[in-house]
């Protein structure tokens, strides 16, 4: 474990806590894409299949359980909680995310570390996570004004994988045999997808203005 990865995991956890806070405190999920949340739940479920077979550390196991439980709770809330589901922007959240599922799965069948059930699903989860934010970014552009908590949520979500890139660089220097090409290239693509959001987030922070994404 290195500081970049630890900070990355904490940033990821903070993003989830911000989203839970938004939904719990405002009883609203306006501006949040249910499709992105469903994709994240799938990412965690397919990536952490080794949860009960490979014990790595208490930290690792606890974090996996937290990520799986929180992502499922958010999807459940957005689908079933009477107040929250009413605030869901169903007519704006129209990204055809099934294509992302299919593309990620096909790519995982082609590109993986080992042609084994768990490894193919691990690669699938890595590719899917890279593109899972797309429905959310599209929804933000369509809904125009972005409320504060939603903006922070997306910012921390993007920042976590950027920190992971430093983690991979660090691990490469420590041990040149350490190669995680699939995760690293995917992580670069994932972070690049946030580029324009980060730009408008920075502008709004600099001008101390509301976060506005151009339509």
């Amino acid at each position: 474990m290195n500081i970049f990865r630890f900070l990355g995991d904490m940033t990821h956890l903070i993003s989830i806590l911000i989203l839970l806070l938004k939904i719990y405190a405002t009883k609203s999920c306006s501006g949040i894409s249910l499709k992105t949340q469903e994709l994240y739940a799938l990412v965690f479920l397919t990536r952490y299949l080794d949860l009960f077979t490979d014990f790595i550390s208490v930290y690792n196991t606890v974090m996996k359980l937290v990520f799986i439980a929180s992502s499922l709770a958010i999807v459940w809330c957005m689908r079933n909680h009477p107040l929250v589901r009413r605030s869901y922007d169903k007519q704006l959240d129209t990204f055809r995310h099934y294509f992302l599922l299919l593309a990620s799965f096909l790519l995982a069948l082609l590109l993986h570390e080992k042609f084994a059930f768990q490894e193919v699903l691990w690669a699938f989860s890595i590719y899917l996570e890279a593109v899972a934010i797309l429905p959310q970014l599209v929804l933000l552009q369509r809904s125009g004004n972005v409320d504060n908590l939603t903006g922070q949520y997306v910012f921390f979500l993007g920042a976590y994988r950027a920190l992971y890139i430093f983690n991979w660089i660090y691990r490469y220097f420590i041990d040149p045999h350490f190669t995680r090409w699939i995760a690293c290239v995917s992580g670069l693509v994932q972070t690049a997808l946030y580029a324009d959001f980060f730009y408008y987030y920075f502008i709004s922070w600099k001008n101390n203005a509301k976060l506005q994404l151009p339509a």
């Binding site: 990865r5 990536r47 080794d50 690792n60 490894e119 691990w122 983690n167």
Partner: peptide, 10 residues
């Protein structure tokens, strides 16, 4: 030889 850790990252 210890099986290399499959994926030790989250």
């Amino acid at each position: 030889k210890q099986q290399p850790r499959s994926h030790d990252e989250l």
